[in-house]
């Protein structure tokens, strides 16, 4: 039998190599490009921390960061709903097997399809939403994606909906992972389904729940897809998030150095937030984190 040290190395090596080479090197390089004045085409010029300083004073960056944080907050809150749904689906009531599959179907759709669907939902004149609103007598329904005061929230809904399946699936698997014996024992003690859910199931999947908080926050802070397709960050930046701002700078404005700096800041911010979440949610008996 090999010694533990060798086994540890052997089991970690593939993951370590892949992540080090394909994620860490690009990450370091993007931090490095952030020190450059570079349009992504011509010659690079070293300018020190100028891009980073500029970013800290850039109102557009901060407003996009605020939008990203709002998305993170909404995504995290929605986890509670997903958990409730997963509790119902994982319970013994009839038909949940079919319901589970149906509920998770939208998560299979690509962002392209989801974006097209919601563009049609929100279309101001022919859209599903406004057709319904006008049918019930609202004469001037909102222009969902054109009104700077509501566009951000209008676009959060499809994003949160897009990921519902993902979290429900994780919770569901976690709940199914709880041994039947534990629940049977509680039933014999006369616990109601609600009590079982809150007092037994929830504590048992707390670890998983904490992980999903981190996933939801990190995923939201670097979110890009639907925002880029549905509004392009507009109108005039009203729905801009950090990743879309970064993309535009690097690829549309030809400011690759500055874009890279923003991308690197995004990473730092995400990292700090993650550490805070871990500290807040940490309990003594945890050894993993």
């Amino acid at each position: 039998m090999m010694s533990n040290k060798w086994i540890i190395t052997l089991y970690l090596l593939p993951a370590f190599l892949l992540i080090a080479v394909l994620i860490f090197i690009p990450l370091i390089l993007s931090g490095y490009y952030g020190l450059m004045n570079w349009d992504g085409i011509g010659i690079m010029q070293f300018i020190g921390f100028e891009n980073y300083i500029q970013a800290l004073q850039d109102m557009k960056f901060w407003s996009s960061a605020l939008h990203s944080f709002l998305l993170a907050a909404f995504s995290t809150l929605s986890l509670i709903v997903y958990l409730a749904v997963a509790l119902i689906l994982a319970s013994k009531i009839k038909g949940t097997n079919l319901l589970r599959k149906i509920y998770l179907i939208p998560m299979l759709l690509s962002s392209v399809a989801i974006a097209q669907l919601w563009i049609k939902v929100y279309n101001p004149t022919n859209g599903m939403l406004n057709s319904i609103l006008m049918a019930i007598g609202i004469e001037n329904p909102p222009e969902w994606l054109a009104d700077p005061s509501i566009v951000l929230f209008a676009i959060f809904i499809p994003i949160i909906w897009q990921y519902a399946g993902f979290y429900i699936l994780i919770y569901y698997a976690a709940l199914k992972n709880i041994p039947d014996t534990v629940i049977e024992a509680a039933k014999i003690d006369g616990a109601t389904p609600l009590q079982i859910a809150l007092k037994i199931k929830l504590p048992l999947i707390m670890n998983v729940f904490k992980v999903t908080i981190v996933l939801a926050v990190v995923g939201s802070l670097k979110y890009f897809d639907l925002i880029y397709v549905m509004t392009g960050g507009g109108p005039n930046g009203a729905s801009e998030v950090m990743a879309s701002y970064m993309y535009k700078l690097a690829f549309s404005s030809n400011d690759f150095g500055y874009g890279s700096a923003i991308g690197f800041l995004l990473l730092i911010i995400t990292l700090i937030v993650t550490v805070i979440i871990r500290k807040v949610t940490a309990t003594k008996e945890e050894i993993e984190y």
Binding site: I119, Y122, T125, E143, L145, A146, V151
Partner: peptide, 21 residues
Amino acid sequence: FVKGFNGLSDQEAKSMFMNKQ
């Protein structure tokens, strides 16, 4: 301009014109 033009893509606007809207 058509309602909500700031949130519409050119393609959507074109379709409105082509559908006589």
